[in-house]
Design a protein around this nucleic acid. Structure first.
Lengths: 348, 348
DNA sequence: GTGAAAGCGCTAACAT
DNA sequence: ATGTTAGCGCTTTCAC
């Protein structure tokens, strides 16, 4: 194994010079730098991660915790993870993947051992088990999602309440008066993950303001479940013409079922989905949708956590980064699944 | 930060004793062990990862490389990643997530720096860029997938050739004579990832043996693409009654389109899918399928890599683990999407 | 069964 | 602009 000392000898300089060439923390004359860089290349030197972490007490590793409880939509998680890893590399950091089996202890272990110098937490619950640790640790941490009490926490998420309102606005403008929300599986609500509730709250809020009626039905992704949910909706409110769907798995079954029932989309029923762009664009009827900006969330989380790390590294010099909740504004893209409400309708 | 030395002082023993209590590498009297363990608990001690890695030259980290090129089915990747992380923890290891942007250099960096002491590579191509490194490094590495030359490599994958044969066997037994494979996107074949080809080869092989006819059409997951693919298949071979689908995204569109065209599944057309169990069970028609054992693959990969690590740690003592290709046998589950071939058929 | 001490390879004062 | 050097916290001989 090639060490820094060997590089130094080969280049005819001291160890610290090599170190400083690597870190750029002090000015090195061009000839020396070039000599060192050449030696590094020729010897195939790679700084030892452990030694570096020990000496500098910075591991250059960000821990990404995804508990992966039931019913989460894997592709979105994955997209976030990818964005996190990519962005981390842009900041010369690597990502350690922590899944849920270990429980909140994992975070404690990883932070306590200095394995990671920062943390990004996904799949945040309203009363998340990991919050005490996050609050007490000095390590920069960012949550992707919102707990019920965000005091002192830095969070990133889509503004789901605004998302709900936006969906209603769109449907209301098209003349729809009776709406229904096909939501996530009941387990998601029970787990109190927050985002599902926030959407529904946004929907209700704006619907009330505009005098629309709303039915909300949780629904797991299976074909039968979607069928049942739809049946109950149209049974209870035959005049329903606007559907807001927040459940990726339910989308295709839903479209398929509507078709079978002779309800044309968007002539008879308009559908707005809350889902990744990719999903919305690839369905049998291209969906009007509010995108879940997975990439953006991952990127922003890393960017925040790095800003915090920088600030705490600078000590009192830099202004400390205030904890803050960053809610991404939703954007609705109109596609083929929404249109004017049918003119003739029963009273519902 | 609590150090091992502080624990030692607190327990009234030497540093090495604490170290040995932690590692179990030498016998400690019960009273001392208990005293040390108590001190550890009381002080909230966590061994420093960097120091440990430096002293022992083992980081207890496995790098998981997933290049994530176009058109890969994210949920399967994710499932593998989760299984890898879970299994790694059972072996007291953590997982470092490497994505593709950095290219093969990432592997070199991570291994060269001692950041990871083992590697698991996903999304392996036939002539994978990372193979030279894998072959030259002494670090235990396992590929999930098969390159064209597996000499000296340890690989884990589903036996896709056997999968193809199994699908044909099933359809043949039901009396189908004209089959079609709805494959992955053309990009997947061009990228020479191997698995898609292997399935088709298996299908062709067995079909030839049994005197069946096979059409193979790549297909991306979009609704239009599936529509086009189906049209071409039934145009060219109107007598086609058996479909093998290896493309998760294409499944729902396909079922939906068949329904629209008045082709009943399985009365008119039988469909066998190669996809995760979860997908097969959740579709509008429950699919007869060969499962992609993502969890098993992830677990097996970690288990192999750990076995190799153990062997090389033991030096000459243990018998070295021979590199080997482990192909998981496919299992076909019969569900609702396959049935006897319709009796009356045109010659095609 | 336990201790003492020599590193592991790097960083960051402190020098000049 | 560069060199010297004292650790960082742990593992692991070697010694008893």
């Amino acid at each position: 194994m090639v060490t820094l000392a060997e590089v130094a000898r080969h280049a005819g300089v001291s160890a610290s010079t090599v170190s400083y060439v690597l870190s750029g923390k002090r000015t090195i004359s061009t000839p020396t730098r070039e000599r060192v860089e050449r030696s590094i290349r020729e010897l195939g030197y790679h700084p030892n991660a452990g030694a570096r972490a020990l000496a500098s007490s910075r591991s250059h590793i960000i821990a990404l915790m995804m508990p992966l409880r039931t019913e989460m939509y894997l592709p979105v998680m994955m997209e976030i993870a990818i964005a996190v890893a990519t962005t981390a590399r842009e900041h010369a950091h690597d990502v350690l993947l922590l899944t849920g089996q270990e429980g909140p202890e994992a975070a404690r272990r990883v932070v306590g051992s200095g394995l990671a110098d920062a943390m990004i937490l996904m799949d945040v619950e309203l009363e998340d088990q990991r919050l005490p640790l996050v609050r007490e640790t000095s390590r920069p941490s960012v949550l992707i999602g919102l707990p019920s009490d965000t005091t002192g926490l830095t969070c990133v998420d889509l503004d789901f309440a605004a998302t709900g309102r936006l969906c209603v606005d769109h449907l209301a403008r098209l003349g729809h008066r009776d709406l229904a929300v096909v939501g996530e599986a009941a387990a998601v609500y029970e787990r109190r993950t927050g985002f599902a509730e926030r959407t529904v709250r946004g929907v209700r809020e704006r619907a009330d303001e505009l005098g629309l009626r709303v039915l909300h039905r949780p629904c797991d992704g299976s074909y039968e479940s979607v069928a049942g949910t739809l049946a109950r909706i149209f049974d209870e409110r035959p005049g329903t013409t606007g559907l807001v769907v927040q459940n990726e798995a339910a989308i295709e079954p839903l479209l398929s079922l509507l078709r079978q029932q002779g309800r044309a989309v968007p002539e008879d029923v308009s559908v707005v989905a809350v889902c990744p762009e990719q999903v919305a664009a690839g369905t049998s009827v291209a969906l009007t949708s509010v995108a879940i900006p997975a990439q953006q969330m991952g990127r922003l989380a890393v960017e925040s956590v790095m800003a915090m790390a920088r600030a705490s590294a600078a000590g009192g010099d830099a202004e400390p980064v205030e904890p803050r909740v960053e809610l991404l504004p939703p954007a609705l893209t109109v596609r083929a699944s929404t249109g004017p409400a049918p003119a003739a309708r029963r009273a519902g």
